[in-house]
Design a protein around this nucleic acid. Structure first.
Length: 271
DNA sequence: ACCCAGGCATTGG
DNA sequence: CCAATGCATGGG
């Protein structure tokens, strides 16, 4: 076991709520008060500790993956300083102090997860994604490794449909797996270049590309303007359209989006 | 039996 | 160039 520090303030329960809010998540499994995930060939358990988390077992690769998974790249201190003077998001920042949005550690996983969530409710998306993970991923102890790109490339479209994908989405996911594109290399590009490259792929539109910037690369200005839940929050909480709200939240659109979505989910009275 | 849910590509005007 | 349409599943 090893200790992994996260910048204060950090709240493990708030930060992992997403893995429990819509059912369970086989690849990021909440079990006996800790988060379980496969790193390499090994299951890792993450649990709360003062000033960070305890990770079992912990090596160099695990340190890197878990720090990313737990939203380490976000500059929460700068966000809180800015948000203090902001209506709505400032109040959510105070009430959710220590919430560090989780990030998808892997680009393929991030895109596939977003594709499952296109158009359908997140409860449906989680259910479909879990069935896909169970079928194509490798189980290690409690949790499953998210299916590899190679495994999905080898799968038949019908096998994906059998787990609940529409035929169109099954084709998108397989085409992505087979595409001649270096997903890791996208991290070296700027936001607009990433948007342009991703949206040339079949099944990846503006919404999916934006959540990739937000939930995989932690880009500060990522702003999923087409997101239905976020548009509702913009309307109910601010009475603004997404375009105008995005300008007002600059340059913290990404963290603002996460706090507004979490806040409108948790503080039902506020929405 | 409906209707809606954190989209997208395709088709038809 | 914009509107209409089909998609598969889970919850209300």
């Amino acid at each position: 076991m090893g200790f992994l520090a996260l910048p204060e303030p950090y709240d493990f329960e708030l930060s992992t709520e997403r893995f429990r809010a819509f059912g369970f998540d086989l690849a990021n499994l909440w079990h006996e008060g800790g988060l379980h995930r496969v790193v390499g060939r090994c299951e890792v358990r993450i649990e709360a500790a003062p000033g960070g988390v305890d990770v079992t077992p912990l090596d160099g690769e695990t340190r890197r993956v878990v720090l990313h998974l737990l939203g380490g790249p976000f500059d929460l201190a700068a966000f809180y300083e800015w948000a203090a003077a902001q209506p709505v998001v400032g109040e959510f920042a105070r009430r959710l102090a220590g919430f560090r949005p989780p990030l998808a550690p892997d680009p393929f996983e991030s895109l596939v997860t977003s594709i499952t969530a296109q158009q359908v409710s997140l409860f449906a998306a989680f259910a479909i994604r879990n069935r896909m993970i169970e079928r194509f991923g490798e189980r290690v102890d409690h949790a499953y490794a998210f299916p590899t790109r190679e495994r999905i490339a080898d799968a038949a479209t019908d096998e994906l449909v059998a787990t609940g994908f529409s035929r169109a989405k099954a084709a998108y996911v397989r085409a992505l797996a087979c595409a001649d594109v270096d997903l890791d290399a996208l991290a070296t590009l700027d936001d607009d270049e990433i948007r342009a490259r991703l949206t040339t792929l079949h099944g990846i539109g503006a919404w999916t590309a934006e959540w990739f910037l937000a939930r995989h690369l932690a880009r500060p200005r990522a702003w999923p303007a087409g997101d239905l839940a976020l548009r509702r929050a913009a309307d109910v909480l601010y009475g603004l359209d997404m375009h105008e709200l995005g300008r007002r939240l600059d340059p913290f659109q990404n963290l603002s989006a996460h706090y507004l979505l979490y806040g409108s989910r948790v503080f039902r009275a506020a929405a």
